[in-house]
Design a protein around this nucleic acid. Sequence first.
DNA 1: CATAGAAATATTGGATCCAATATACAATGT
DNA 2: ACATTGTATATTGGATCCAATATTTCTATG
Lengths: 221, 221
Amino acid sequence: MKLDAVDIRQAASAADIVYEALRKAIIEGALAEGENLRQDQIAQMFNTSRIPVREALSRLEQHGLITTQRYKGAVVAGLSIEEIEEIFEFRALLEAEVIRLAVPNLDRKTLDLARRHCDDFGKESDSAKWGETNRNFHYSLYEAARRPYYLQIVRASLDRIDRYLRAQLTLTDGMKRAAREHEAIFDACAKGDADMASSLTRDHILDAGRSLVVFLRDQRG
Amino acid sequence: MKLDAVDIRQAASAADIVYEALRKAIIEGALAEGENLRQDQIAQMFNTSRIPVREALSRLEQHGLITTQRYKGAVVAGLSIEEIEEIFEFRALLEAEVIRLAVPNLDRKTLDLARRHCDDFGKESDSAKWGETNRNFHYSLYEAARRPYYLQIVRASLDRIDRYLRAQLTLTDGMKRAAREHEAIFDACAKGDADMASSLTRDHILDAGRSLVVFLRDQRG
DNA sequence: CATAGAAATATTGGATCCAATATACAATGT
DNA sequence: ACATTGTATATTGGATCCAATATTTCTATG
């Protein structure tokens, strides 16, 4: 197990740092599904005691990223195909609505930023960074919806399936398709067509979900 | 501050018990908005140390039910009118979809159960129990959607605004209206009309939200 | 008497220690 | 040889203690 350094601005507590580092490692796939997370081991890694580690693990469990059992420890949670399908269906519903609410509020500056993120995604060859640029693109538009509660849920739902998406996209040509779909979504936003942007976002997510399920069924047998 | 007893079957840890008790107290309004939650005080209440209390508080903060500041402690979180409006809008979107997905799966047994919960709600005079019967009715139908992830989010979003709803319904005649709307939702479900059930659920939630906002604007000045 | 500064108090986050239990492995009997 | 039992080890959850800081109270001074 190997973890990246973290740079949380307002990391008030050690627990926050541990939480963010583990969250990042899990959603990026650096920690494999089923991998054991020993409190002692993590505590030593962060030069801290088990107390903040336990708090971090507790939060990760609340978000469904790990499961714990007393006297046995925590493991990185895995999702069944059915659970993954449900989360994609959920994201399609939610993000389609968020983009619809965002379009009327989009201004020049936001569109320019989204345009840059869209280009970055198209040009990104390092698959490890794919997740970041993807989030950057979508969230730069979503922010305009001014719905912090929606966005919190959007982020949490993406966290759950992000590492499966990344695994698939590094092994298939899904990224090209995603880049094309991003272009279409951006164009609809730039034209101010909320219904179109919403519909395309919905399809974008459902397509990705279907591809991923095919990929996983094959991989898992 | 006074807390109910808890009865969690699989309350593996003291932290679970404290978490559930505090959660219940907050969503029922037994703990007022802004009320201080001192770790020591809570620990003594549950005959335990501050460690499990801290874990419980950390989880409550993740769910947005409290806010904490180092060296100052935790307080029960309050929501602005705008935040409440957002959550009702969110619930309308989500629960309308959940009931739509549920209707095709409804069987005799589930409908009978929902019928009973619907009657219970109409007959319930104790406003303290309103929240439970309301949840029982809606969730008995929602379960049929077989979407555990959706339901988890539905529960969390209701938790955030439940105590405002309860406060309003005890002081207005909103319960009669809610009871009528429940009847209509149930009838649509019994007829197998998913679109109608969805639309009525959406209106039911948006109506409740609007009434609540009027009530709160008046109350808060 | 009012106010500024200092000491006392309250309160949190983290470290270390202890209790409980699951797992692994060795010893023992058939 | 193999199954069973007992023990040693690993690991978690909780209790107690310590460090850091915010708040309050008290005192001294103009």
